[in-house]
Write a protein that binds this DNA or RNA. Structure first.
Lengths: 169, 169
DNA sequence: TTTTATTTTCAATAAATACTGAAAGTTTAA
DNA sequence: TTAAACTTTCAGTATTTATTGAAAATAAAA
């Protein structure tokens, strides 16, 4: 294995471990990493072989990355198989993963918090009022962060904005 | 169980599930939630009973929340036991959890990426140069986000800043 | 159509993670 | 110093999550 190949392997392993820490399936993270370090489009069989994972796992990982929108299918002339390439723009990954996780994981929680706040709105006990207030503060915080994130990412001016922040803060 | 108690229980369950999704142990998230909705300081035994968890689990969850700095010990007059209360400021949670996870999970990865970049610096192949560039872009992105987050949180002007962003973007 | 290539699904299994509970360790009080 | 109250540790067990692989489904070619 060449020096660069060893580095690539280490990147794949590291990326997989980071994903695990953050609730992203290790294989999913590794497939993304493999496609990122690969200079050509890879088929499911290529991925199975490179990462030593099953067809089912490879298929499900690719599907999830497609859902996130951070890998793409590439049609290869004269090939029946599907081939995949990775989105290279780090800002795009961040936006798409953040949006997807917000939609799947944060929004349902916010919906429940809203219900809990509504349910305790009329409560006149100290206990009820304190709970209502606390839930409201979580909602407010989440709304604000969410709005900021949307603006930073959607503007496609993330890097510019960060420089601005360094100046004004 | 009163209406407010039911709402509190639902909050605890929801918070635990959200934690799981994001790689935070369910019990840890639930203990934080329980302390948040509790109007008085709780002992380990109180927590064991309320959440139906073992002493070992309660102890380890409390320790982790103390490490994060999002719960505090409260000395109760005439009591030998330790009692705990939750930090109520949502911005403080976010800062402390983010800082802790950055230190424990992100920094080691950044260190490895730095090594990988160094290792491939001299590589003149197209393959090596592309890999070196990609790793550099991940590092650059992470540094920028990290710098921004530090500034937003450390300034304690998070909410003000978010309002400003809404205006300028 | 029929055959062959390829993708998808999902029940069974493996692996990783979380939790328990009792024993060891520590602190405070008698 | 001994005993009681309390906290911490960790080997064993339970639970959850991830992975496999073979069968079913789908799509393209013969």
């Amino acid at each position: 294995m060449s020096a660069v190949e060893q580095s690539k392997q280490k990147f794949i392993d590291t990326w997989g471990a980071l994903g695990s820490d953050w609730g992203i399936n290790k294989s999913v993270a590794q497939v993304q990493a493999l496609l990122l370090v690969s200079d050509k489009a890879l088929s499911t069989d290529d991925i199975m072989e490179a990462l030593k994972i099953s067809r089912g796992n490879a298929n499900m990982s690719l599907r999830q990355l497609m859902d996130y929108g951070i890998i793409y299918k590439k049609v290869m002339a004269g090939e029946r198989k599907e081939f995949f390439i990775a989105e290279k723009d780090v800002w795009k990954w961040a936006l798409r993963i953040a949006m997807m996780r917000k939609q799947k994981e944060i929004n349902p929680v916010l919906s429940i918090l809203k219900d809990l706040k509504d349910d305790t709105r009329g409560d006149k006990t100290t206990e009820g009022k304190a709970f209502n207030k606390m839930v409201g503060e979580i909602q407010s915080f989440t709304d604000q962060i969410s709005t900021m994130a949307d603006k930073v990412f959607e503007s496609n001016r993330g890097e510019l904005l960060l420089k601005l922040l360094k100046v004004i803060m």
